[in-house]
Amino acid sequence: MTRFISPLIAIVAGLLVLLGYFLPNNDLLGGLRAKFIEWAVILAAAALLVGILNLLTVHIKKISAKEKGSFYSLLLIISLLFTLFVGLFAGTDSSAMQDLFNAVILPVESSLLAIMVVTLIYAGIRLLRYRNDLMAFVFLITVLVIMLGAAPLPFVELPLVGSVIRPFIISVFSTSGARGILLGVALGTLLTGLRVLVGTDRPYGGK
């Protein structure tokens, strides 16, 4: 029975939200759209709790099985519970929570972003091992030209690179390529949405 009910709910809700988006002046459709989106946000918030429980379960199992990296799992659980208690007792807008965010999350994420720089340089070097073709060469040369045009070089200034070549690549090749990719992605998004709306794609699973 659920085999038919869940697609039916998905299709009806999807169609109503879509029509509500395109016909915002229709009070009924506009109201339904707002209500459905509100429900989706509430469901997503409830799902977050389920997700956190899933995260806890995965790491508790990892610790109990003494798997590789279980010490980090223990740290994760302690940090999670500590942050939860601070949030519950001091409040999410409290200075303690702000300090936790500014002193832990922000620097750690910034550090990961910094590691990305090294990772990308290494990936650039490794690229020719994966793809020893013309496009890989074009990609690497473009990266080099853009970086040389943007970086403040000591003592020397490369003629034309920063003033002509780099802006030309960005405003012509890069922008047109990006727009082409975005158009393709938009069409893909449209068709994926339509497949879900007609029920041939069922991302909500079910047998």
Partner: peptide, 19 residues
Amino acid sequence: QAVLYASASEPLIGEELFA
């Protein structure tokens, strides 16, 4: 996509994901 083109062994570009 630019990052993945450089770092992944088999990257898909643009709408190839939807294909």
